[in-house]
Amino acid sequence: MVTDVQQAAMGMVLFPAGIFAFAATTLFHIYAVISSVGQFDQYKEKKMLWVAIAMFFSFGFAIYYFVPKSRMKGLVVLSFGLLGLVCYITGTMLLPAKEPKFDISPTLLEEVKLTKPDPDRYLQIQQEYQKRFDDMIAEQEKTRRSMQDALNTQNKQAVEDQKRLQQEFENQIRQLIDQKIANPSQPQ
């Protein structure tokens, strides 16, 4: 059993395949006509007129009758054309309809009644979203403050460490100066 999805998938493959076969038929027909036109030299002038008239009214398909070497090409064109036609028609039959088919009866229309929008409900929804937005902004502000507090704490710690290191450095310098004053002859 073929499901609707499989049927639609086959239609989606066959439809473009039919169009491709039509395009291939057209291109091969153009090739066949162009390659076979040079063989008209074998006909007399009066007969050429009828061939030209037949080709004019048959859109070039008469060439497959009048030029014997082109008959095999005509069969290829005919088979591609028929294949394209079959694929195109089958694809369009398998594809789902563009518009859904609804049975809208008067009783169904009476059951479904369109009402005016409720402004109170819209106001309530708007207030809910405003509250969510305000909560989100408050949460972001809280996160920003906690990050700022952490950064300030780190900055204070860094300043204190810098002051401590500076104090230690100054103490070491004073000790070296005191030692130099106490023992001027001692090398460093």
Rank of each mutant, 00 (worst) to 15 (best):
M1A: 11
T3Q: 02
Q6M: 13
A9I: 06
A9S: 12
A9D: 15
M10G: 07
G11N: 05
G11K: 02
L14C: 09
A17E: 07
A17W: 00
I19Q: 05
I19G: 02
I30D: 06
A32D: 02
S35G: 03
S36F: 00
V37R: 15
F40Q: 12
Q42M: 09
Q42S: 12
Y43L: 08
Y43T: 05
M48W: 12
W50I: 00
V51E: 13
A52T: 11
I53W: 06
M55P: 07
F56A: 15
S58N: 03
F59W: 12
G60F: 01
I63M: 07
Y64Q: 00
F66Q: 14
F66K: 11
V67P: 06
S70A: 15
K73M: 08
L75C: 04
L75K: 12
V76F: 10
V77W: 12
V77G: 04
V77S: 06
L78G: 11
F80A: 03
L83W: 03
L83S: 08
L83Q: 00
G84Y: 03
V86M: 12
C87F: 14
C87D: 05
T90R: 10
L94W: 14
L95C: 06
A97I: 01
K98V: 09
D103G: 03
S105L: 05
V112G: 04
L114S: 05
K116M: 10
P117A: 04
D120K: 14
D120W: 07
L123A: 06
I125E: 02
E128S: 11
E128G: 07
Y129D: 13
Q130P: 01
I137F: 03
E139H: 07
Q140L: 04
D149A: 04
N152A: 11
T153Q: 14
Q154F: 03
Q157S: 05
V159H: 13
E160Y: 04
E160N: 12
Q162K: 12
R164I: 01
R164C: 03
E168N: 08
F169I: 06
F169T: 15
R174P: 00
I177N: 00
S185G: 09
Q186N: 02
P187A: 09
